[in-house]
Design a protein around this nucleic acid. Structure first.
Lengths: 253, 253
DNA sequence: CTCGAACCTTGACCCGAGGTCAATGTCAAG
DNA sequence: CTTGACATTGACCTCGGGTCAAGGTTCGAG
């Protein structure tokens, strides 16, 4: 006939936990002695260790209660279920560990793997740290608002990176971020960009449909807080040129 | 500029969690639009994924808050600490899995390994299921009240099992459980038990000090609910004999 | 015999990390 | 104009206990 403290120590749980199990109806309340102390037997110790083992495995107390009342067959089935569960948690834990490991090693964690690869490629091509960050923020924003559109645009942009002229334009736009708004090079750059789009065959689209358009990503980027006078000017020139082209088209039509 | 729902979906958390992080000061409150909706940027998404990753690793939110404010060095140190922690949890999980596996396979779980081995040995010697259970309960009770005494007695009893006469006596006592109280074999059995203890050299001790005395374990066992008229009678005879022996000693002294 | 330490009793409140519900407001599309 | 999806706040619920308060009990030493 042992006391609650001895029982708890034997099973490796706290006294409070034992009383909690009583309240939940998990562990039978033992008889009291003359002073009102609970007096336990070995059977209680066995039941308690069983409860503790299941509880440590993350089984909710309510479920443990059911299991203790179940027959051997049901119990065995539940055990193997719990074990599968535990195994799953082990795998999940390994995945978490991998992600945690990447946490201290940069920003690859925060975007889908393929985007991370793409960003690495940009860095290798010589894009500035700031440019890469703008891209990253753009893709995050885009894929949270419309994941499907993001996937399509992304595939298109990835393809464009195989075109040396596009890469050259991209790098120059990246540098242009720091130019002043009246830099004479901006006009030429805007022209080359326009010609590239026309040459690619989708320069005619209105602006919302087209695919690999760096200005779209940049547009998104501005809403994340990045902007530069030179880029604003670049966009301005592009709009004017497009207006002229549209007008010319109308004239010729 | 995304809404709370889009942000939550991107990071893979619930809206409620995002607001919870705001309340805890973990994630900066973004500006509101004209209708009072929170409007997030990509920076928020990055911060949120970071928070989520740490939270999934079991890091308390208060600790995450500290980490986000810490410098890169402290952060990296904390990460490796967390990773070690995670690894430890993995090991613990494997241990739990092993114990869970044993749960459906009997009672080895509920007593220390060496006692489990001892109980198996009893079973092999032909001790009844009931007898083994009485022993198990006895050791549980004993090791919860006085673990040290239990260890000493246990070592002694294990040694006694190497004596064929002790084993024979044990088996006969085990069978005697079901005899009636006036069975004539009880007297002879009591005599053999007494002679064994005397021959072993500790028959002179008072009864509280001695070591491998099955009647002690049985005595404990009675307090767990097991008892039989034959065993009660056996104890009665033993007491009478001991009384006579003591008296004789006194006379000769 | 008394003292203190260690043990036991009940009850009430507290914790993290959100979930749920209610009442209300707002947005976008048919 | 309505409908359904989404947003806002606040209050209360959950689980598995921990902590505190305000006592009563037991045990061993002096």
């Amino acid at each position: 006939m042992i006391t609650i403290g001895q029982l708890a120590a034997y099973a490796g749980v706290t006294i409070k936990a034992v009383r909690h199990y009583h309240k939940c109806g998990l562990l039978e309340e033992p008889p009291r002695d003359s002073s009102g102390y609970r007096r336990y037997t070995a059977q209680h110790a066995i039941a308690l260790v069983k409860i503790k083992t299941l509880a440590e495995a993350g089984v909710p107390l309510a479920r443990i209660k059911e299991l203790l009342a179940a027959n051997a067959h049901q119990f065995a089935a539940a055990i193997s279920e719990i074990d599968r569960n535990l195994q799953e948690r082990g795998k999940e834990l390994r995945r978490t560990r991998e992600r945690i490991g990447r946490l201290s090693a940069g920003d690859r964690l925060f975007v889908a793997t393929e985007v991370a690869v793409y960003l690495d490629r940009l860095r290798q091509l010589g894009v500035s740290q700031r440019g890469v960050q703008i891209e990253r923020d753009g893709w995050i924003l885009l894929s949270s608002t419309s994941p499907k559109a993001a996937a399509i645009w992304f595939a298109d942009k990835l393809e464009a990176l195989d075109d040396p002229e596009f890469v050259a334009l991209y790098l120059e736009c990246d540098e242009a971020f720091d130019w002043s708004a009246d830099d004479p090079r901006l006009d030429a750059l805007a022209g080359r960009v326009e010609r590239w789009f026309v040459g690619r065959g989708d320069g005619h689209t209105g602006g919302t449909q087209p695919a690999a358009d760096p200005s779209i990503a940049r547009l998104i980027a501005t809403s994340t807080g990045f902007s530069s006078p030179a880029w604003d000017q670049l966009k301005q020139i592009a709009r004017e040129r497009k207006g002229r082209v549209t007008k010319t088209h109308r004239h010729s039509a």
